[in-house]
């Protein structure tokens, strides 16, 4: 069982950072919606407050790791220009997609949207983490602030979802492959 270096980085970017961010989003939304509502009866302990602070900071870090690995490690491999006369475009995913009318929209719509919209997630989540760091359990006393933070978090989930969906579909239609091969396991 082998995997190429580029494929491994794609996995780290998408399945590691990106998917973990998407999973974590639902937990943060539920916690902030349920526990920090002004009408919520239960008292938020210092431990719970610290937990959500750390949780949101980790989420913001995950979002940044996702977009930075995507933009600066994987995207250059994706958009690499083949030398003149190249007929096998397997190592040039963008050109491979653009060479076929049935796949060109995965680039012109999918990648063009994904590469920009994904950045709304770290911006939104860093704001949410920053607000939580400053206000902590006092956020219960600022319902308008809590509501707008929740709205930004929903948009960050949407942005990450769009990026994740197109990332998966792009990699299905034109995988980012190449580089040294890593042998994970010997077959029998």
């Amino acid at each position: 069982m082998e995997i190429t270096t580029r494929s491994l980085w794609t996995l780290i970017h998408g399945m590691g950072f990106g998917a973990l961010y998407l999973l974590a989003c639902s937990g943060a939304l539920v916690e902030l919606y349920r526990r920090y509502a002004p009408a919520a009866g239960d008292v938020i302990s210092a431990c719970d407050e610290s937990f959500l602070r750390i949780y949101l900071v980790v989420m913001a870090a995950l979002a940044w790791l996702t977009v930075l690995t995507g933009a600066y490690i994987i995207y250059p491999w994706y958009r690499a220009v083949p030398p003149a006369g190249t007929t096998n475009l397997t190592a040039f995913p963008q050109r491979l997609l653009m060479a076929n009318p049935s796949t060109v929209a995965w680039h012109s719509l999918g990648m063009e949207w994904k590469e920009h919209v994904a950045w709304l997630a770290p911006i939104s989540m860093t704001m949410a983490a920053g607000v939580m760091m400053q206000y902590g359990r006092d956020l219960k006393k600022h319902p308008q602030l809590r509501a707008v933070v929740l709205s930004f978090m929903w948009i960050s989930l949407l942005a990450a979802g769009v990026a994740g969906f197109f990332g998966a579909m792009l990699n299905k239609n034109a995988p980012v492959e190449g580089g040294p091969t890593i042998r994970l396991m010997h077959g029998e």
């Binding site: 920009h116 911006i123 704001m127 920053g130 400053q134 206000y135």
Partner: peptide, 27 residues
């Protein structure tokens, strides 16, 4: 200060509006 129960909404508003500006700037 930031740890006080009477923290004003200004710092939160600054973070929220700046995030809106940042998102708009990406687009």
């Amino acid at each position: 200060n930031s740890a006080s129960a009477s923290l004003s909404n200004g710092p939160g508003a600054a973070a929220v509006l700046a995030a809106g500006i940042g998102a708009f700037m990406v687009g």
